[in-house]
Design a protein around this nucleic acid. Structure first.
Lengths: 405, 405
DNA sequence: GGTGTTTGCAATGGCTCTTAACAAACTAGT
DNA sequence: ACTAGTTTGTTAAGAGCCATTGCAAACACC
C-alpha cells in the first residue's frame, strides 16, 4: 500500500465535503497526540476544541487505521476516572526513505513517531554508471530494509528517493537531470524491478531542509536552508512548507550575482556565488584543484584543521560571498533562520565567521540575530531522514491515506 | 458593519466544523459566479462539482446576503428550461479604500464586481503635518465618499487605508512609521472621529501589488512587484497571497548589495540598490539634486523625454542596478513575473532596457521570458484601488462576513 | 462505604451535502 | 396546435458528521 499524492494541499478552490471535515479533524487529533502524548481523549478534546464524543469517534478511527495506540490506564493520582493514554503507534504505518549519492546508497525506515527503526548505508561509486544498474541496487537495498522493517512490525506506506538532481514539480517519477550521477531524463518506473514499490524522487537538498525543520524542536516556520554539493543551492521553507517557485527553480542561490564584475561563470554571467563558494572554486583558491572532486569536503576540513593558510583564506572568501548572497535572501524573504547544510555543515566552523560578519554589516535595518544562522543539526543524514519522514508527515496531515482497520 | 480580520486564513490547525464547510462552499459558488457570470445554478453545479440542490441552497443564501443577484430568464435558444442568470451584485456590499500620500488624499468605493463607483482625490501637502489633522481630513473625505456610495445603493463593509509606511503584521490599526509623512507610532483609532468607521492601515506598495494582481486578467500567482517612492521596496505575492516574511520585513529590495564595495549607504552597508536606483541617487546622478524631493518623477521623466544626457545615464545606471537586484530575486523566488510599480512605472521607458539586459545576461539557467518583466498597468492608482478591493476579496473568500438577509 | 469528580460512550438532534423524484419551462418534431 | 424530449430549479428523504445530553464506569477523598 502506497501513500500517493502530495499531502497538505490547501485546495482553496473546490468545494468542501464532510469527508474533508473528517479528514481535517482526524489530522488535528493525530497532531495533538503527536505533539503532547501521552494524552487522554478528554485531554485531546480540551486541547483542540472538539467534544469528547467527537474525539472518541476520531480516536477510534485512528486506532483502527493503526496510527494511534491505547496504553494501559495510568494512575494519575487525581480524582476522577483516569483517562486512557493515547500515543502514536510505534508499529504499523511507516515511511521508507531511499538515497542515491555520488558515493553511496542509503535506505531508512521511520515509524509514525519519526523514530528511525532501520538504517542502511552502502558505499558505492555511482557517478557515471547506468541509471538502471544503480536503481536495481537501490531497489534491492529497499527490499532488504522493508523486510527488516516488517520483522519489527512495520508496514511501509510510502517510498521517497532522495537524488542529487532536478526533480520537476509534477508527479510522474521523473528525474530531469542529475549531473553528478550523469543522469538525464530518468523515469524511475522504467527501471524499478517491482511496479508496486516504485519510489517517488525528490531533490536531496529539499529533503535535507525539511528534515532539519521537522527535527528542530521549536519550528522556524520560514527559513532558508543552504546546501552545497557540486553546485550551491538553497531550499526555501515558507510557513512550514517547501516553496518551489513558479516553475520549480526557486532557491537557485549559486548564481546570485555577488560581485557583478567578478570572474566569469559557466552560466554565462559574471561573479556568481558559485565562483566563490562552489566546491570547485574553493578547491582552486585553496590550491587543491589537482585533487579533483573526490571527497573535497573532507579534504578541505582536514587542511583547514591543520591551519593551511590558502585553505583558510579560500574558506573565508567563500564565507564572505555566501554572506553577501544571504544578505539578499534575508532582505527579500525575511526568514526566521538560515541553515547551512550539505557540505557547508561540515565546513561551518570556518565559514560561519565570515558569513556572520557580512550579515552583521549589511543587515542593519531589521531585527537580525546572529543565532538565526546555524549549521544543520542533521548534516549528511538529513536527506535520507527527510525522505523517510515525508511519508510520515503526509500521513499525519491526512490519516485517511492509511488503510482502514 | 465592518468586515474584520484577515481573510484567507488557511487554518491548517484547528478543527473543521460544518460552518467552515458551508463557508467554503459559499465562497466556491461565489467565486464561480464572479469568474464566469452570467451563470445558472446548474452551470455552477456542473462547474464546481456540487449538486444542483446544494448550489440552490448556497445561491439562495448568497442572494440573501446581497452578494449575488438573479437576472431575468434568458432565452438561450437551446432545448430545456432556461436557467436564471446569476451575477455579482452591483449594489449592496462594497469596499472603501482610502489613501494618504505625501501630496494628496484619496478615497474610492468599489462594488463586489470590483468596479470603482466613487473616486475622489484631493491634492494636499501632508508631509510634516500632525497625524491627527491629516486623519481628520481623510475621515471627512471618507464620509463624503460613503455618502456618495450610499446614494448609489452601496453599503461599505470594510475600510482600508493605504499609507506610505510600515504597518506591522498584527491587527491594531498601528502605523509604525511613515518617514515621508513624519509619522511614528500612529494608532488610527486615537485620531479617527468616528469609532465605527476606523479604517485598517496597510502599506501602499503592498496594496499596489495586490491591485495589479487582482486587476490582471490571467493571474501571475507568484510575482515580485517593485516600487519606488523615497525608498525602494518590493511586495512579494506568492501563490496569490501577500508574503510578509517572518517579521513583516520581506521585500526590502532597496538594501540588496548590488555592488558590495560601492558607495556607502545610510543603512551602514555599502553598495545598496538604493544608492543606484533610489530617488535621491538618481537625481544626484542626473545632476538634478538641487531640485529636492518635489515631484522628482515628473522632473526626471521630463528631462529624459527631452534627451538630457545625464538623466538618461542616471536612469540607465539605475536600471542596471535594479536588474542586478532582480536577478537575485528571480534566482531565489522563481516568480512568474516582475512588475515595476510606483515611480518606476512612470520611468519604465528608460529603465526597462537596462533591467532587461541585465536579466537576460544573468538569468540563463532557467526559462525566463523578457515579457515577464512589465510596468504596472495601474500605476499610481494601484494603492487606492488595492485598498478598496481588499474588502471585496475578503468578502469573496468568506461571504458569511456579510450580514444575512 | 458514601460522595464528588472525571472519563468514555451511547442516544438524540441539528446542519450540510447527496440522491431521487417532480413540476416548470423551453425546443423540436409532427 | 400538440406531443415528446430536454434542461432547470425545488422539494423530500437519506447519510455523514459533530454538538448536546445523559449515564455508567473508575478513581480520590472523607
Amino acid at each position: 500500500m502506497t501513500v500517493v499524492g502530495r499531502a497538505g494541499r490547501s485546495a482553496s478552490n473546490g468545494p468542501a465535503s464532510q469527508q474533508d471535515m473528517r479528514r481535517q479533524n482526524l489530522a488535528v487529533v493525530l497532531g495533538a497526540v503527536a505533539a503532547h502524548s501521552p494524552l487522554s481523549r478528554a485531554d485531546v478534546a480540551g486541547r483542540v476544541g472538539l467534544t469528547r464524543a467527537a474525539v472518541s469517534s476520531l480516536v477510534d478511527e485512528l486506532i483502527g487505521r493503526g496510527a494511534v495506540t491505547e496504553a494501559a490506564a495510568t494512575a494519575s493520582g487525581r480524582p476522577g476516572r483516569p483517562g486512557r493514554a493515547l500515543a502514536l503507534s510505534g508499529q504499523g504505518p511507516a515511511g521508507l526513505g531511499l538515497e542515491i549519492g555520488v558515493g553511496h546508497l542509503g535506505a531508512c525506515v521511520v515509524d509514525l513517531r519519526g523514530e528511525p527503526r532501520v538504517w542502511r548505508r552502502e558505499e558505492r561509486a555511482n557517478a557515471g554508471r547506468p541509471a538502471g544498474e544503480v536503481l536495481a541496487e537501490v531497489a534491492a537495498l529497499a527490499a532488504a530494509a522493508e523486510a527488516e522493517a516488517a520483522a519489527l512490525g512495520l508496514r511501509v506506506d510510502g517510498r521517497i528517493l532522495a537524488v542529487p538532481g532536478v526533480v520537476p514539480n509534477e508527479p510522474g517519477g521523473l528525474v530531469e537531470r542529475a549531473p553528478n550521477l550523469g543522469w538525464r531524463g530518468v523515469r524511475l518506473a522504467d527501471h524499478w524491478p517491482d511496479a508496486d514499490t516504485v519510489p517517488e524522487p525528490e531533490n536531496e537538498a529539499n529533503l535535507g531542509a525539511l528534515a532539519d525543520y521537522w527535527n528542530a524542536g521549536q519550528p522556524a516556520e520560514t527559513f532558508v536552508h543552504v546546501s552545497a554539493g557540486t553546485g550551491v543551492g538553497a531550499a526555501l521553507v515558507i510557513d512550514g512548507r517547501l516553496f518551489r517557485g513558479a516553475r520549480g527553480f526557486a532557491g537557485e542561490l549559486g548564481h546570485l550575482p555577488v560581485h557583478p564584475d567578478g570572474p566569469g561563470c559557466a552560466c554565462g554571467a559574471r561573479g556568481c556565488l558559485e565562483q566563490y563558494a562552489g566546491e570547485a572554486a574553493v578547491l582552486r583558491e585553496a590550491g587543491l584543484a589537482q585533487y579533483g572532486p573526490g571527497d573535497a569536503v573532507a579534504l578541505l576540513a582536514e587542511r583547514a584543521l591543520a591551519g593551511h593558510p590558502p585553505t583558510l583564506a579560500a574558506l573565508e572568501r567563500a564565507g564572505s560571498a555566501l554572506g553577501l548572497a544571504l544578505t539578499s535572501a534575508v532582505d527579500l524573504i525575511d526568514p526566521d533562520g538560515l541553515v547551512l547544510g550539505g557540505a557547508y555543515a561540515d565546513l561551518a566552523d570556518w565559514l560561519l565567521p565570515a558569513v556572520r560578519a557580512e550579515l552583521a554589516a549589511r543587515v542593519t535595518l531589521r531585527p537580525w540575530a546572529p543565532e538565526a544562522l546555524r549549521p544543520s543539526a542533521l548534516g549528511r543524514r538529513g536527506p535520507l531522514l527527510g525522505a523517510a519522514l515525508t511519508t510520515v508527515r503526509r500521513i499525519m496531515a491526512d490519516p485517511t491515506l492509511l488503510p482502514a482497520g
